[in-house]
Design a protein around this nucleic acid. Structure first.
Length: 272
DNA sequence: ATCTATGCCTGGTGGC
DNA sequence: TGCCACCAGGCATAGA
């Protein structure tokens, strides 16, 4: 499941490979991924040149001058660059053929991903983008901001950190790691988290996301190599996936519980 | 306003 | 070996 570090890694590789390329053709093998008008998506994009690629939260933002593709990988979305004559694989749903004879192919086994075509000037008015909060490594993310966002909430802190309208881009893996690094158990309610602990959350977000991004993200389960990129952060995970293993800090056996319907890894020795 | 349930999806897994 | 129920989970949305 790509989270912010994985999304940024994908965007970085795309940036290196497809900026300056013109889209020659678009083929749909399963068009449910396209959430805006499907004909318009093709008609407008064919002939346009990719000018820039960025990310915001878990969204990949592909600029083509006045139009922009918003891409969310959700659970299993991946991009591949392949020769246009290469046989299509199962689950390669959207095929962008470029002017250099290569395809950019969007593959998504579970079809949860999203592609939208919007006018570039409207990006930040699109509800899905407008609702997002602050990037985890942005200086605007302060202990006060986190505290203000959560201190009246009766929701578990884990759910609040997964809430994209507060901090952008954290998913199940990094939330578990951030809470472990902050010494807070995932079930603790937002209103029971102190300002001092919010500072720990802030610091953990910055250090964990920075390091994970440097290492190309985390490769576990479904986030495997896309665009030939394998993440390395899985070697640094402290609790996520470590059920029944000793905590690397205190030796307590790590438990797997459910919080907000999600599999959650916790060290009851370190996290209070 | 806020909470819960459901839908979107397929592949892997465990039980029989 | 095959069949089946169930689980994984980000996020929107409908319903309570």
């Amino acid at each position: 499941m790509p989270e912010i570090a994985e999304v940024r890694t994908v965007a970085k590789v795309l940036k290196k490979n497809i900026i300056g390329r013109t889209i020659k053709d678009i083929k749909y093998r399963y068009d449910g991924i396209i959430k805006t008008d499907k004909d318009e998506f093709k008609n407008i994009l064919i002939g346009k040149t990719i000018t820039d690629i960025n990310t915001f939260g878990k969204w990949i933002i592909i600029n083509l001058d006045d139009y922009t593709i918003l891409s969310h990988l959700r659970m299993e979305g991946k991009y591949y660059i392949k020769d246009k004559n290469e046989e299509y694989e199962k689950h390669e749903h959207i095929i962008f053929t470029l002017d250099n004879g290569l395809d950019l192919r969007y593959k998504d086994v579970r079809k949860f991903g999203i592609l939208m075509l919007v006018k570039t000037k409207d990006i930040y008015n699109i509800p899905e983008i407008a609702k997002l909060g602050i990037e985890p490594d942005d200086d605007k993310l302060t202990d006060k901001y986190i505290y203000d966002s959560i201190h009246k909430s009766n929701k578990p802190i884990k759910e609040l950190l997964l809430d994209q309208s507060i901090i952008n881009g954290l998913g199940n893996i990094y939330v578990d790691e951030v809470l472990f690094a902050s010494g807070i158990k995932p079930t603790r309610l937002g209103k029971k988290v102190t300002l001092k602990e919010c500072n720990k959350i802030k610091e953990s977000c910055k250090s964990i996301i920075t390091k994970a991004t440097e290492l190309g993200g985390t490769t576990i389960r479904s986030y495997t190599s896309s665009l030939g990129v394998e993440g390395k952060y899985q070697d640094y995970l402290k609790v996520h996936t470590k059920v029944n293993k000793p905590c690397p800090v205190c030796g307590t056996i790590i438990k797997k519980i459910r919080v907000g319907g999600r599999g959650t890894y916790v060290c009851t020795g370190c996290q209070k």
